[in-house]
Nucleic acid binder design. Structure first.
Lengths: 96, 96
DNA sequence: CACTCAAATTGATAATTGTCGATATGATGT
DNA sequence: ACATCATATCGACAATTATCAATTTGAGTG
């Protein structure tokens, strides 16, 4: 994954709203629909983008599909952005 | 500045290319045009977006305008993304 | 198998955005 | 004041994207 893909995945208000919901818990698509107020196809679309970007994990449970945010991926991508665009702010830190 | 604005500003290949050029030096618009191969209006457009997002600083020198990347802003925004979307990866770190 | 419920996909549309050519602005030098 | 050079803005167009209604897929249930 590259930093443009990451930025594009984050470059939408609805998507960040979804990411916030998924940050520290597993939620199924229906609940995301309820809590965001956007239509189910739209939520699925956004989840697809986040999935392709590697930012969410998926688990099937009966008829429902649960999603959660992949915090490791976010951290890696933020590190990449720092390396690329704020290298002088990393010197003497623990980043290799 | 919010994290969506930041992500949108980064969510373009040409823009990240420009940011990379500006990362550790001041460059004037003409040189950015030469080194990116995109037209001068397009470069100005991208610089405008980066400027509004607070990611670049500007200095006028005669007829030329120089830009440089604001690494502090990038670092702050990355920190914001970490706080919002990878909080569990920050625990026990120096982030307040 | 037929039915139901949840999520994904499709198709269409409106909004946003990246790009360029043409033009305007603004600074410098003659 | 005029000419020139560098950058910004304007206007138009093409490409991308966010959104929803309608449909399909897929998993469970009677």
């Amino acid at each position: 994954m590259n930093s443009v893909t990451f930025a594009k995945a984050m470059a939408d208000n609805t998507r960040q709203q979804i990411m916030h919901l998924l940050c520290c818990q597993w939620i199924c698509v229906g609940d995301i629909v309820d809590q965001t107020g956007v239509s189910q196809p739209t939520v699925s679309h956004h989840l697809g983008i986040l999935r392709v970007a590697g930012l969410v994990s998926t688990r099937r449970e009966g008829k429902q599909v649960f999603y959660t945010l992949n915090q490791d991926a976010v951290a890696v991508c933020c590190g990449m952005l720092m390396q690329n665009f704020a290298p002088e702010k990393l010197e003497a830190d623990g980043e290799s």
